[in-house]
Nucleic acid binder design. Structure first.
Lengths: 296, 296
DNA sequence: CATGATCCATACGTAAATGTATAAAGACCT
DNA sequence: AGGTCTTTATACATTTACGTATGGATCATG
């Protein structure tokens, strides 16, 4: 098959992809660190080579034609594959070796990190990943970890922090518990239910009262400093417990209480020290974590 | 994310892909209609940009490094996506419209063509596909079809024919039939079984005798000129019937008789008239059929 | 309605990538 | 062993593609 001759120039395909995704030649040029005339020529050359109009020039605007719309997903596939090449390559570099220590809450460490570590190991086989499950943000300062996933902005100025996502959580209880005790429909109802505390019950009560949930500390019939244990207590039917929706989604026996009316959001910060700017192995893990969290 | 800067040049990626697949820079240059020094520079530039050695220069030979082996599948993905772009584009061209008539045996028409026609319709929405189920090779000469899928080389010199595949078939019977009548283990056994004829029983007997199967024409207890009907007769337990393995695979109730010792091969020819050289719409369908048959 | 900003297309000089030519080196065959 | 046919890498001339500059056109804004 003489497809070689009919295969378009890959650079032109990248130009098409970027133009279609950014919506204009100028924006695509900025994204690719090229100039607008270059993109203009590349897209025109591609159209010429394919024998198909890809964009409709209507005024100063470029609109994808039907043909362009048909080709776009395949161009996107190319782009994704190219990104995988780049990512894979960066993991294969000889500098990417040694150990990276990631600290996160016990829940994040157990429910989220394993899959990320798996892809990380695949991308960078010479890397060793240490997962440190801890709720102490000080770890990073003591240099006991390289990267931390935390739910509050660190106040140390010499740390590099990035807000990756505002995660959403709800208040969950076991379906069996709710079947027995009834499903609350108002905030007042919540005070007559059992609660499972995440750490100190007094601090937790304060937090919930600040959310306009009128309860007293004696609703907490069980508690644990360990988030996984708290969660399992709730799953055992011991009461209501706040939980990240992402984690809760893997527990079909749990149900969100007053789902549409009651939720919490909490930031997810990715924190590291300044070494990230000089250490490629930490940078790789940092970027991959950011991507994985954002896309979770 | 500043991935834009780290994303390698797509042209270089194509150079890497072609080099890895052909095994040498020179071969890649020939495949891409470029020169060997160009490929040499492009691959070197890619290695430089990625910070990873992709090939090991051992003598005059290029061997993929572990890193290169890791990247290759992603580069392949890019290549496949690029081919899809090209194919899609060719289908979107305005010249690709109108009708294409494909003739094939009734079995091929019913069991294989539908999925091909589906992808064809998706690629070239302005194309109308006529499937003509017929066992008469003359159709093409009478201009009743544009493309024919046949199992013998056409003797008309003004037709363009291409041997796409040597298909493999076996002799099949219903499992229920074999449970009742026993499974033959030798060629001699076959003569005591019932057979379903594909067309004329005398011609079929001749063919089988030529294969060293010692049977007489009276073993044919049923027959049909229609292949699909013959196959359904066999499925109904009426006897043994030769069938293309590809078709038989979709009938779990059928079993190959003496699978390891007895099989037939038959060529699959793709035939068209010379118009293919001037008609893009026929060329597209022809190429797609060839690909689909080869990859089936 | 006019002004400014933004976008696309074209022209031109320049920089970058390509092709040609060539050398060195390994594989294969006699 | 020697010759031939590969292969890859480098040097140089040329072509190609790029960036800068500019004009025309459209849309937003005062």
């Amino acid at each position: 098959m003489d497809h070689a001759k009919t295969t378009p120039d890959w650079t032109h395909l990248r130009a098409f992809l970027s133009t279609a995704e950014t919506g204009s030649l100028s924006a695509a040029a900025r994204a690719l660190c090229l100039t607008q005339p270059t993109l203009s020529r590349q897209v025109a050359a591609l159209e010429d080579q394919l024998g198909v109009m890809l964009f409709e020039r209507v005024g100063r605007r470029l609109d994808l034609t039907d043909a362009g719309r048909e080709l776009l997903p395949h161009a996107r596939d190319m782009g994704l594959a190219a990104e995988r090449v780049a990512l894979s390559a960066s993991g294969q570099r000889s500098e990417i070796s040694g150990q990276v220590r990631i600290t996160a809450s016990d829940i994040t460490a157990a429910m989220f990190l394993p899959s990320v570590v798996a892809t990380l190991r695949k991308i960078a086989p010479q890397l060793t990943i240490d997962v440190i499950a801890s709720n102490d943000i000080q770890d990073l300062m003591r240099r006991e970890a390289d990267i931390a996933i935390r739910h509050q902005r660190p106040d140390q100025p010499d740390l590099v922090a990035r807000l990756v996502l505002d995660a959403v959580g709800h208040f969950y209880a076991a379906k069996s518990y709710l079947d027995k005790r009834g499903r609350p429909t108002s905030r007042a109802d919540l005070a007559s239910h059992d609660w499972v505390s995440f750490g100190d019950a007094n601090r937790m009560a304060e937090y919930l009262v600040a959310m306009d949930i009128p309860l007293t500390v004696d609703v907490f019939k069980s508690s644990s400093e360990n988030g996984l244990v708290s969660w399992e207590l709730a799953r055992a039917g011991l009461g209501i417990c706040p939980m990240d929706d992402y984690v809760a989604a893997s527990a079909p026996d749990m149900e969100a209480v007053m789902h549409d009316d009651l939720h919490v959001t909490f930031p997810i910060w990715l924190v590291t020290h300044r070494e990230i700017h000089t250490s490629p192995r930490i940078r790789l893990v940092y970027d991959l974590l950011a991507e994985a969290i954002a896309a979770r």
